[in-house]
Amino acid sequence: MELSTLALFIPACFALNMAPGPNNLLSVSNASRYGFARACSGGAGRLLAFAIMIALAAVGLAAVLHTSEWLFHAIKIIGAGYLFWLAFQLWRATPQAEGMAAADSPGIARLARQEFLVAIGNPKAILLFTAFLPQFVDQSRDVTAQFAVLGALFLLLECVAIALYAWMGVHARRLFARPSSKQMFNRVCSGLLASAATALLVARRG
């Protein structure tokens, strides 16, 4: 792959990685509640979901979402429902209950499952890979190998985004140390997750 292509791909890709979507908001929330390391480790679930989507885009299976209206709507309704559920739980959470949860050290597998379900429940993400990655693929060369390189770079930059958003969450926890402030922060995050769920519900195939 030519360096000029990578020079265009990397900044454009990183802009997508850093967009404040549902998974990045979840990283902020998890870091503020459970710490930097657990939020970053939980991001592995998101990486797995994105790896699956990249593979689907590479083999052309994502085209099914372009042609199947009911499948697109089914996935987005399930994904939005899960986001609403997370927002509801976060809204109800109290600082005292969170202190007990942090002491219990929630398993990384549970946080990874959350990240995976949020990512995999967004059909627009699959369509994004279908529309974005091919722009940087040279059809005269090995397409599969190029998708592998671009996909690996996307996932690497996604790791950076996970760490940066988790870092924001840790600093937010310090900023909102008082119980009343922490509850307000939880409810702001809850509102943002609910807004993301609403945006997912009204999303159309692009």
Rank of each mutant, 00 (worst) to 15 (best):
A74R: 01
H66K: 12
L128Q: 08
R174P: 03
L156S: 13
G60L: 11
R46A: 15
W167F: 14
F132D: 07
A199I: 05
L156G: 09
L153V: 13
F176G: 00
A31R: 06
E115Q: 09
A119F: 01
V149G: 12
I75H: 04
A49W: 04
A102T: 13
V170F: 08
S41F: 09
R46C: 14
W85S: 05
F154R: 01
M18H: 00
A44T: 08
A172K: 04
L56D: 14
R92E: 14
G206L: 04
L156T: 07
Q89T: 12
K182C: 10
A80W: 00
Y34P: 00
L193F: 10
L61P: 04
A74T: 08
F72Y: 13
A87C: 03
M1E: 13
V118Y: 00
L65A: 06
M168W: 11
L111C: 02
I54A: 02
A63Q: 14
F36Q: 08
Y82R: 00
A109K: 00
F154K: 02
G169T: 06
L25A: 01
A12R: 09
Q96G: 13
A172H: 07
A51S: 08
S190H: 06
V143T: 10
G35R: 05
R38Q: 11
S68P: 03
P134F: 03
A125W: 06
A93R: 09
V64A: 13
V202H: 11
V188N: 02
A177P: 07
A87L: 04
A197S: 00
M100V: 15
L175K: 10
N17K: 01
W91L: 12
L150F: 15
F9L: 04
G206P: 09
F72I: 05
A125K: 02
S41D: 11
E98N: 14
L156E: 08
W85A: 07
G21W: 10
R178P: 02
L155N: 01
F88N: 11
A145R: 08
T198R: 02
A51P: 07
W85E: 03
R33W: 09
H66D: 10
L155F: 05
A57G: 14
G121M: 00
P11H: 08
G43E: 01
A7R: 06
L86I: 14
A37T: 15
I120Y: 04
C189P: 03
T94E: 13
A125I: 11
G21Q: 07
R46Y: 05
R38M: 11
P95L: 15
A177E: 12
K76C: 02
Q89H: 10
A172F: 15
A131Q: 09
A119I: 01
A177F: 14
S4H: 04
A163K: 06
Q139K: 15
G81M: 01
L48V: 13
F14T: 04
K124Y: 10
P179T: 11
A177R: 12
S181P: 00
G169A: 05
A166E: 09
A109V: 12
G107Y: 02
I77K: 03
V137P: 04
A44K: 03
A19D: 12
P106Q: 12
L47M: 11
